[in-house]
Design a protein around this nucleic acid. Sequence first.
DNA 1: CATATATCAGGTGCACTGAAATGA
DNA 2: CTCATTTCAGTGAACCTGATATAT
Lengths: 168, 168
Amino acid sequence: MFDLDTGALAGPASQADADAHPQHAPTPHRLSGTVVWLLGRASLRGTQLTRAKLNEHGVGKWHYAVLAALTEFGAAAQAELGRRLGIDRSDMVAILNVLEGQGFVSRAPDPDDRRRNSVVLTEAGAAALTRFDRLIAEADDALLSGLSPAERQQLVGLLEHLIFPATE
Amino acid sequence: MFDLDTGALAGPASQADADAHPQHAPTPHRLSGTVVWLLGRASLRGTQLTRAKLNEHGVGKWHYAVLAALTEFGAAAQAELGRRLGIDRSDMVAILNVLEGQGFVSRAPDPDDRRRNSVVLTEAGAAALTRFDRLIAEADDALLSGLSPAERQQLVGLLEHLIFPATE
DNA sequence: CATATATCAGGTGCACTGAAATGA
DNA sequence: CTCATTTCAGTGAACCTGATATAT
């Protein structure tokens, strides 16, 4: 039947000789062989690195994403921002509250459609984005430290292909 | 919703037909150019696919991971399982409560070290794992549907290299 | 004494849902 | 009335920390 290993590591109660950490047990092949698990591990590492950097500046990854979208595509309504970045309408409210509180964006009702809030990047927001860009690049670099430049490029291409299937 | 997908596949219909800037910009380059963001998107898609399948059977990804570890490496204490899988000791309790409630594992104090719970896979657990294996494979396949077999292999290799820097 | 294990009690970020109020 | 936008209230899985009781 299923073996009751009584310890799996060593035999009878001899753990006191912790002199050499036997490198952590390997990962089950059922996990390490699937892309979903590998992506989850890699993504977790990435978010940890990114969060560690951004948290010191009082923002998270979504705040960075919003600033980036506003810089690259100009002012937009909240719903439009959410659609573009994949942020839920409900979370967008809280994200913009923080950004507005820090003076990085301003919300003003759109005169053409007063349901909408036109979210505009401020000068302070643009300056902050410039600072954050470096942090993100550092996190990305730390995450990819084990890969050669060619491998990094390969990885980016594969992930883009995976996320945007139809785009050439 | 379409939070996870391209974000602009069908669009909200006639809303944006009168836009002054026809150039549609799916994702800010600051995001799509970084690996951390790409990994986050891909991982989210993967977890959604996986969760959708596993939820119908009343389990999550961690429950699957525990069953996989028990099958491949035999019975183990909770702390050992957590170390191997990257699950926090605190979450492991809740995960095993579910698995034990479903009869997939059993917890019994280790006679050699009575601090430990020896977690053992039951026959029902082994049978469940066999079912879950197919679901995970399906989710993985759906996630990778846009990649060729060669590209999939490439991606797996790169991710393994990224997660386990010192490949032994 | 110190260490390890299992458990409980939280906190946080994030994905997500439902419903309300407002306006097109 | 129908639909879109913003906001609020709340759920749930994951990640994480601290503290406690028990055993080594």
